[in-house]
Nucleic acid binder design. Structure first.
Lengths: 224, 224
DNA sequence: GGTCCGCGTCAGGAAAACGTCAGGATTCCG
DNA sequence: CGGAATCCTGACGTTTTCCTGACGCGGACC
């Protein structure tokens, strides 16, 4: 089912969107502030985000930037402001669409449909297959020998970065930045631990990896 | 250059868009009605379409449908109408975005950037090919006979500097500066060792190099 | 013909990077 | 409040890489 994350501090609007989204077959995930929104987003796969620019703890643009940092999920921005500048900022931050309050529910739902329709072909091949295992980037699912493999959030995050750069070398710094944050530069022991765990769960022979390769001194590389 | 097809019957608006798009580095292609728009679209490759819903010869939604029939190019719809229903129709017809007149040029350009960013997900990395091997600078990948060649960080660094200066002579000093640092001037034995290792891994006949050439007394040169 | 200089080759030890493991801290959830 | 899952951290042995010196070869020059 398509999961839609709705971020707004207006309880009444949240309730209205929950009802309408549920009626159209979506699964709404609700958050009242930016912090819990980013938490929900990292916790479960989200297919689309609707975010209000006016939030109690942070600006909605920051939420957009926080999401765009590691995902290409479509984002629709809501705002009561009529200032054109805020539209530009939000769109340049990575938002896909912009709706000014007050808006009609039909229009918002149409924009939701449009955004989801665009998003489907966007990941050109959301499923990456190797002889040993399969990674479904959209569903955040890894299967091996037909059985689902259970990954922790950090393990998945590391694997996701590598798979999104299939065949390309990913430097330790890039991995640390994308998974742990920009303040991490030299904690390469983190990588060693999690790469080892991924190999233990995915590689046929973890001591002789065939898909999660180490390039000593440079980084790691995923090859199908 | 990115080609943007603009379809509108308002000469003044067409002129404004032509100027602004040109200023931002796009190549505008102008059409005043739906028929000539579809003609231009079939005549040359178009990267993005901006179409007004109010056209003299046909409805803009028909233009969108006509384009969507055989292309996935991003489409932004313009309209002076405030009717919500028309937005729904246009978006469901396949439009990617919708802007209501009057609009600010900054907002429209921001939406253009957003649409193009969505449409171009995979920037290709520069690849240099020789009869013996290929170097993918973006992926940090070297292939020979279809198999990946493993390079150490220093080997890769030396090769990268040479390949980025394909055909040009790179002095020993420049190589030492770029790979080992500005304090290295005369340690040419480093170069001899690593050039030899690169030849052993890449050249068909390492004793008679064809791509990593020595210029005695000067430096080294890479030729495809 | 002899000498000198630059280049290619090889091998071995020092240093850095990596894989592995286990224990403790933290968070999450009932 | 307790248990489980996850994350972080440090230590140790192993692998890889880097530097270094020695030697041979060939051309330039005297």
């Amino acid at each position: 089912m398509t999961r839609v994350l709705v971020v707004d501090d207006d309880r009444q609007l949240l309730r209205a969107l929950r009802i309408n989204l549920t009626a159209r077959g979506y699964q709404p995930v609700l958050a009242a502030d930016g912090g819990s929104a980013l938490g929900e987003f990292s916790r479960q796969p989200i297919d689309l985000v609707i975010v209000d620019l006016g939030l109690p703890d942070m600006d909605g643009v920051e939420v957009v930037e926080g999401i765009r940092g590691w995902s290409k999920v479509p984002v629709i921005v809501l705002s009561a402001r009529h200032l054109e500048q805020s539209k530009v900022l939000a769109l340049d931050a990575g938002a896909d669409d912009y709706v000014t309050k007050p808006f009609g529910m039909d229009e918002l739902l149409a924009r939701v449909r449009a955004a989801l329709r665009r998003a489907v072909p966007a990941p050109e091949s959301p499923v990456v297959t190797t002889p040993a295992f399969t990674v479904d980037l959209g569903a955040r699912l890894v299967t091996r020998n037909g059985a689902q493999v259970r990954l922790t959030p950090t393990e998945w995050h590391v694997l996701e970065v590598l798979v999104r750069n299939t065949g390309r070398l990913v430097s330790q710094r890039q991995l640390l930045h994308e998974v742990w944050g920009p303040r991490y530069e030299s904690e390469t022991n983190y990588l060693r631990v999690y790469i080892a765990q991924l190999r233990a769960k995915l590689e046929p022979d973890p001591s002789a990896p065939r898909h999660l390769l180490t390039e000593p001194g440079m980084g790691y590389r995923f090859v199908p």
